[in-house]
Amino acid sequence: TTITITINGEELRIRGDHEEIHKILKAWEEDHNDEEIVRLIRELAER
């Protein structure tokens, strides 16, 4: 699965399995701050 998210003008492409993507979207849905979401995404992007 690949998704693209733009946060603060920075486009981040994430490839991951369903569970990893779900974790990010769940954090977003629960209204975590952008920095935390960006950190989760970067961790995935670095793999």
Rank of each mutant, 00 (worst) to 15 (best):
E19R: 10
I5H: 00
V38F: 04
I37S: 02
E11G: 04
E10G: 04
H32N: 13
E46L: 05
E35G: 08
I21D: 00
E30H: 08
E19V: 11
T1L: 14
N8R: 08
D31R: 15
E10Q: 12
E11Y: 05
I5D: 00
I5E: 00
R47T: 10
A45R: 05
E20P: 02
A45S: 07
E19W: 07
I14E: 00
E19T: 14
D17Q: 10
E30A: 13
H22R: 10
L40P: 00
H22E: 12
T6H: 11
T1P: 08
N33W: 14
E11C: 08
D17S: 15
R13H: 14
E29V: 08
L40M: 09
E35A: 13
H18Q: 07
D31W: 11
I14Q: 00
L25Q: 06
D17L: 10
R47V: 09
I7N: 01
R39G: 06
E35H: 06
I41A: 04
T4L: 09
E43N: 07
E29L: 13
N33F: 15
E36I: 11
L40S: 07
L44T: 02
E35N: 11
E10C: 14
H22G: 08
E20W: 12
R42E: 07
D31T: 10
V38Y: 04
A27M: 15
L44R: 01
E36Y: 12
K23L: 10
R15T: 15
E29A: 06
W28I: 07
V38P: 05
I21S: 01
T6W: 08
R42S: 07
G16L: 07
I7F: 05
E30F: 06
T1S: 11
L40Q: 14
E20H: 07
E30N: 12
G16M: 06
I3P: 01
L12P: 00
R13V: 15
E43R: 05
D34I: 15
L44V: 04
E43I: 08
I14Y: 02
D34Y: 13
R39H: 07
V38R: 07
D31G: 14
R39S: 08
N8H: 08
D31Y: 09
E43V: 05
E10P: 01
T4I: 14
T2N: 06
E10L: 10
A45Y: 04
G9C: 02
E29K: 04
E35I: 11
H32K: 15
I3Y: 01
I41N: 00
R13Y: 13
E30V: 11
L25N: 02
E46V: 10
L25D: 00
K23W: 04
E20C: 03
I3L: 05
G9T: 03
L44N: 02
G16D: 04
A45N: 13
K26I: 10
L25I: 12
K23N: 11
G9K: 04
R15S: 15
R13F: 13
D17N: 12
E36T: 09
R47S: 11
A45C: 07
I21M: 13
R13L: 10
R13D: 05
D34E: 11
K26C: 05
R42F: 04
I14A: 03
K26L: 14
D17I: 06
E20R: 04
T1N: 12
K26N: 12
I5L: 04
H18K: 11
V38Q: 12
L40D: 02
